[in-house]
Design a protein around this nucleic acid. Structure first.
Lengths: 151, 151
DNA sequence: CAAATATAGGAATATTTATACAAACAATAT
DNA sequence: ATATTGTTTGTATAAATATTCCTATATTTG
């Protein structure tokens, strides 16, 4: 239904622009904008959007969108490294290689990036890379790039 | 008071290592660890720590630290089991084996730990172990150790 | 030291949020 | 068209969480 999609959009917009402290507040704003819904639906919407109430430095709460690390709102970029590509999903990274090369490249990653990479598992043209905890995507990207580009 | 500081520490630790869905769950774990407190105090603690309940992709909620705290969490230890090693990253466990042994050991894990382990994927010297939901790291470590040490 | 002030935390409760259930409707298959 | 299945949502309520009010214990200050 069109209305629902609109509503989810508007919820995201409101929540990013003003400090909303609870669902009733947000509910009223939505009603002012012409939406007709109940708290139950709003609770479900927030769950779908993964919007959560987090405490700020003063003793208040504010609804916020998930941090960009987890968010799927904008498409995760595929990075090209030589004739290979790298993309993340959750805490995992996937490198696509030319057919037959995955095992060799995975071995190189294991050998040269063991501080940041917990392990790799390779198929024919796909390597699953499991980063160690504490390394973020940029760090892993940088490290993988430098290993792969030397090949 | 010392006790409070300890408690906040332990809360962070528990929350990073296992999927906590509500305060009562966490309350019980804390009581098992010898802390004495009520839900009211726990609510205040979580507010201080800015730990919040966020929805995951399945319809569940999980308490999590703010993302900036992930990098501060203490480095995850690698455990040695025989000539193999075990380390966690997020919800996944990775076992490193001698070259060529991963497939065989993975088969043993599949066969003997199927209640705790959802599945394994093996490369040449790396096994990706996917634990079932509801098992924490200590449990998985114990189970994997006992399976692998018998080999 | 004693008074003043701040901090921690429990019990009870208010507030807030999630969900079970049922109804309405749409989409799809028979 | 009729049955089947899935989706969305409201109502009512359960469940979860935050806070008020109060006491006890620390900490600071004169």
């Amino acid at each position: 239904m069109r209305n629902k999609i609109d509503r989810l959009h508007v919820i995201k917009e409101i929540v990013t622009q003003q400090a909303i402290g609870n669902q009733d507040e947000l509910l009223h704003l939505l009603k002012e904008q012409g939406f007709s819904l109940t708290q139950a639906t709003l609770s479900r919407d927030l769950k779908r959007l993964k919007i959560t109430k987090i405490p700020n430095d003063m003793g208040e709460y504010r609804y916020t969108l998930p941090s960009s690390f987890y968010t799927q709102s904008k498409r995760n970029e595929t990075k090209t490294i030589g004739s290979n590509s790298l993309e993340f999903s959750g805490q995992l990274a996937v490198v696509k290689t030319r057919s037959g090369y995955a095992g060799g490249i995975a071995a190189e990653i294991d050998e040269h990036a063991s501080n940041a990479i917990l392990g790799t598992i390779a198929g024919d043209d796909t390597i699953l890379v499991i980063p160690r905890e504490g390394f973020n995507r940029d760090e892993i990207t940088y490290i993988l790039s430098s290993v792969i580009e030397k090949l």
